[in-house]
Each structure stands twice: as structure tokens, then as C-alpha cells.
Simulated scan of single mutants.
Amino acid sequence: MSVKAIERKHQEVTALVERMQNSKSFVILDYSGLTVEQVTKLRVELLENNCEIAVIKNNITRRAAKELGFDVLAENLVGPNAVAFSNEDSVSAAKIVYDFAKDNTALELKVGVVDGEYMDNTNIQVIATVPSRDTLLTMIAAGLLEPIKEVAIGLDLMAQKLENPEESSVE
């Protein structure tokens, strides 16, 4: 192998390491069996959610994963793989790929790294089914507001009872 080829591969690995470090999460997926149209649809869906997908040689991905300390990730780099990166939200890429795989059974979500922690297939699927951050915040807000609403209703009923004691008494 020529010195130029070795240097080019080293640069590719360095660029991938930087990309992996700068993303909130990334997942490895097997896209074999998908049509060009399906891959394009997945790419567009990922881009709309501030995520990216890239087909990267397994050897480059393996070297980058090892450099980041994710040797176990390298074991899953067999066959045609792509890497989906999530730039803003830790679960977006996994969620989009997981949902896309429901309708496109040829797509397989393999493994990934979420917030710097290795996730096997089972954990990635759990992460992918977690509601989005906005949904979780809405659920928390609703949970916090429910007791306040109940207190307000109770106080209103008490106020009505005090204003009209004859109407609220049981006969």
C-alpha cells in the first residue's frame, strides 16, 4: 500500500473520530436489501430531524471505533453498513431508523453509541422507543399541572358551597 493511501485512510479515520465525538449519538445499520428510493427516503427523513447518514467503509469505521474505545462496536461491522449520526438529540437517529425499519424490514438497526455509551441492539431499540424530549417535557408539565388543577376545582367547589349554603346541602 502506498504512503499516500495510508495517509488518506488515516485522515478518513481522524475525520470519522471527530464526527463521532461531535454527534450526540450514532447508530450502525445494515441497509442491504433497501432500494435506492428507500435509502433516499431514509436520508431525507434523517436530514429533516438534524441527523445524517453516511456509508463508510467498515475498516474505517472499525478503526475509528477502536480509537474511541468502542472495540465491541467493531464486532458488528460485517456486511454493508451505514452510520446514522444524531447532531442535536440523543435519540433522534435511533428513533428514525427504528421507525423506518418497521415499514422496511430489509433495514436492520444493529448497535450504536448514545451520549458516549455503547448500546447493543436491545438497548438501541429501547432508546428508539423512548418519547422525544418535547413529548417527555409535555408529559412532565401535564403531570405537574394535574394536582394544581384538582386543587383549583376543589377550591371552586368550596367557594360555591360557602356562597350558597342552602343549594349545596343534602336534603
Rank of each mutant, 00 (worst) to 15 (best):
L162P: 00
I148Y: 05
S132V: 04
L162M: 08
K4W: 04
N121Y: 02
D99I: 00
F70G: 03
M139F: 11
G69E: 03
T14N: 15
V36P: 05
G69F: 04
A93K: 05
Y31W: 04
E150H: 12
E75V: 12
T35P: 10
E171C: 03
A64P: 12
V170G: 00
A54K: 13
T61H: 03
K95E: 05
A64Y: 10
M139L: 15
N76C: 01
H10G: 09
R62P: 01
T129D: 10
A93C: 00
N123F: 06
E18K: 15
L109H: 04
L157M: 13
N87G: 00
P147Q: 03
G154E: 11
I96A: 02
I28K: 02
A5Y: 12
N81I: 01
D134W: 08
Y98G: 01
K149T: 13
N50C: 00
K41V: 10
I127H: 10
N49S: 13
S32K: 13
V3G: 01
E48F: 00
S86T: 01
S168D: 10
Q11T: 11
E117W: 01
F70D: 03
P165Y: 08
V17C: 06
T129N: 14
S92A: 15
M1I: 11
Y98K: 09
V13G: 02
T105W: 00
E75Q: 13
R62N: 08
L68R: 07
D99G: 11
M1E: 14
N58K: 08
I6M: 15
F85L: 04
A82H: 04
R43V: 06
S92L: 03
S25C: 09
E12D: 14
E37H: 12
D99W: 01
D99T: 02
A128N: 08
V151G: 09
L107G: 04
K102T: 11
I6V: 13
K102F: 06
